[in-house]
């Protein structure tokens, strides 16, 4: 059902970036193990996985900071495997603190153009334009240490975009920011990416971030690709148990005729929000924990078939910890 891998030939025509059988071995560990992945032109693909899964390795291989042990990498159909980072035409936004500290925001943004021998006046114009685009039109003369973390990342984004790269690389650009700024900047990145129509590889370990902004999500585990698909599919129909566990919470229950049935041979996977708490014909259980999450309350309920996690719409009368209740697949 879910296309775990598309064969390179299938996507070669519209692929902006392609990994073909790329492996990277560090000593004894295989950080990447035969990665096949194609980014379509103009899409934002989130590379999602736990730390140490190889996602950062993949990004650094694409940027040219590292060479693959085997396999090849193509940008716009051109093999760039042996091309140095400075000639790859990628724009990268790092985790944090990547702005050049002795240059103003505007000078930072203009740096790539300076390396491309663009004239001073044109550089200034383009830098101002991009700072305007990221909402920092009035901070061009500020030094990085005078900007907040979120502003610094905006400048870094403007800097990466200034050279009109063929692909934008985002290496956990939000991970060092406060929660509120993180969501704000996340949405802004998506808005800019759509407006500029730039092919983007977004590396993150945060599944909610990946699901929120990506056209497609690629889930990586232990150097291998687990699933590549649109967020809705990855969430609703995880291809492997790993994806099911990593992307959100998943209950595995025995079913018969679409109802939880203890002892049934068939099992299925159910998201917490698909479980109905207090269902009349539900399975009996005891509430172990109850976590108020705002609009919903997450309950962990011990039942005959194991501990189940269920999200109930917050309302008066929800069972409290230690109380008995019932639970069933809704609908």
């Amino acid at each position: 059902m879910t296309a775990v891998q598309k064969s390179p030939a299938e996507t070669a025509t519209d692929a902006a970036v392609e990994f073909r059988g790329v492996s990277r071995v560090f000593g004894e560990t295989r950080a990447l193990d035969g990665l096949d992945l194609a980014l379509r032109r103009g899409e934002l693909l989130a590379l999602l996985g736990p730390s140490g899964c190889g996602k950062t390795t993949a990004l650094r291989l694409l940027a040219g900071f590292d060479r693959p042990t085997s396999g090849e990498i193509r940008i716009d159909g051109r093999d760039v495997t042996g091309v140095p980072a400075s000639k790859r035409d990628t724009g990268m936004v790092f985790q944090a603190y990547s702005l050049f500290p002795t240059m103003t925001a505007a000078e930072n943004v203009a740096f790539g153009l300076r390396m491309r021998k663009v004239g001073g006046a044109e550089r200034g114009r383009r830098a101002a334009e991009l700072l305007e685009l990221v909402g920092l039109g009035d901070r061009g003369g500020s030094y990085p240490h005078e900007l907040s973390g979120g502003q610094q990342q905006r400048v870094a984004l403007a800097r990466a975009l200034a050279v009109r790269p063929s692909v934008l690389l985002l290496d956990e650009p939000l991970s060092a920011l406060d929660a509120r700024v993180r969501v704000q900047l996340r949405d802004e990145i998506r808005r800019l990416q759509l407006a500029e129509g730039i092919t983007t590889l977004f590396v993150t370990h945060d599944q909610s971030e990946a699901l929120a902004v990506a056209d497609r999500v690629a889930v990586l585990n232990a150097g291998r690709m687990e699933q590549v698909d649109v967020p809705q599919e990855v969430y609703a129909r995880p291809a492997t148990p790993f994806v099911a566990e990593f992307v959100g919470v998943m209950n595995t229950v025995p079913v018969s005729g679409g109802r939880i049935t203890p002892g049934a041979a068939e099992t299925t996977q159910v998201r917490p929000e698909a479980l109905l708490v207090g269902a009349p014909d539900g399975l009996a259980g005891t509430v172990l924990t109850s976590t108020f999450l705002g609009p919903v309350t997450r309950l962990v309920i011990r039942t005959e078939v194991g501990e189940l996690t269920a999200d109930a719409v917050t309302r008066p009368g929800l069972p409290a910890i230690g109380e008995h209740t019932t639970v069933q697949i809704s609908g």
């Binding site: 900071f65 603190y97 990547s98």
Partner: peptide, 17 residues
């Protein structure tokens, strides 16, 4: 910081630049 060097390289700078 290593990311300064990488950012510079990424933006097209030579080691000398």
């Amino acid at each position: 910081l290593p990311q300064w060097r990488e950012a510079a390289e990424n933006l097209g700078a030579s080691a000398w630049s």
